[in-house]
């Protein structure tokens, strides 16, 4: 009897330790990056593009990368939303009778979600060459869109799946067409979840380095058209960190602080929006 208790106690301690480790690691990641980057973060970093000799430690900032990342992430998220929302709605409203087809699509989307972003990057690169494009904002946006569309579809799909069938049937019995049910009923009913899905995809798009590494190129200027190359924040961190000069590496840490701030902001925003939109939901 005692041995049973002792065993349980032993494992409970282990469980407690492992949960604590996870919290500690998160805190430690944030703490160590803030500690390394915060002292070197200044207004110039956020408001200026690199000046001459920036990569030797002279003045300037990484505005080009911040703006470039926002361009890529916003462009890709909107494109992916324009493609992903109809697909998710179609799966849950028009294809309700074809369960097997829907499950097949879900399976395929799950597989696509699991494919590493570097593969999408390599694929985007070959597409780019095939169409005779150079590394550019457009190529980056397309690659990232392909990369986040499955994530977006699955995230919206998960939300739509939770909507009760009764709502679909009652809307149908009132004479709504399927497109009206899609956009006026299901879309409105699941708006909180859809916003979370959007922000999740946006976070993925802005944080991913491997897919844009091969397709967007890198410049010190803010792009003014889709055909120009652009810098992105993850790559700015990556390139600055591989510099042998201390000041440049310190700026990489400061850039990491900016990226982490954006990500934390997005996750906070998702929480607040989800909470505030939940109030508009029809409850059963």
């Amino acid at each position: 009897m005692n041995r049973r208790k002792a065993e349980e106690y032993f494992f409970r301690v282990l469980m407690f330790i492992s949960s604590t480790i996870i919290i500690m690691v998160l805190l430690h990641i944030i703490y160590s990056i803030l500690k390394a980057g915060l002292p070197h973060l200044n207004w110039d970093m956020i408001s200026k593009v690199p000046e001459g000799g920036y990569y030797f430690g002279k003045g300037g900032g990484i505005l080009n990368a911040i703006v470039g990342s926002l361009y890529v992430a916003i462009g890709a998220t909107s494109l992916a939303f324009a493609i992903g929302l109809p697909v998710a709605l179609f799966m849950n409203i028009h294809l309700t009778k074809w369960k097997k087809v829907v499950n097949g699509i879900r399976f395929l989307m799950d597989l696509l979600c699991g494919i590493p972003s570097i593969v999408y990057g390599a694929f985007g690169f070959t597409l780019m060459i095939f169409f005779g494009l150079r590394t550019s904002l457009l190529a980056g946006i397309i690659t990232v869109t392909v990369f986040i569309v499955p994530i977006m579809i699955r995230a919206i799909d998960e939300v739509l799946m939770t909507i009760p069938r009764g709502l679909f049937e009652s809307a149908l019995s009132l004479g709504s067409t399927k497109s009206e049910i899609s956009y006026r009923v299901f879309f409105k009913q699941s708006i909180a979840g859809i916003i979370t899905a959007l922000l999740l995809s946006f976070g993925r798009a802005i944080g991913d380095a491997a897919s844009v590494l091969l397709t967007t190129g890198y410049t010190d200027y803010i792009p003014t058209s889709l055909s120009q190359p652009t810098a992105t924040l993850p790559l700015a961190i990556f390139f600055q960190l591989s510099s042998p000069i201390l000041e440049v590496r310190q700026r990489a840490y400061a850039s990491a602080v900016i990226l982490i701030a954006i990500i934390l902001f997005i996750s906070l925003l998702a929480r607040i929006l989800t909470y505030s939109y939940k109030k508009n939901k029809i409850n059963y």
């Binding site: 996870i22 690691v25 998160l26 990641i29 990056i33 390394a36 999740l200 976070g203 802005i206 944080g207 991913d208 380095a209 491997a210 993850p234 961190i237 990556f238 960190l241 990489a252 840490y253 990491a256 990226l259 982490i260 990500i263 934390l264 997005i266 996750s267």
Partner: peptide, 12 residues
């Protein structure tokens, strides 16, 4: 949050 942190941050 841990799931949302970009991989480049883990690298740093």
């Amino acid at each position: 949050i841990l799931a949302g942190i970009p991989s480049v941050i883990y690298g740093v």
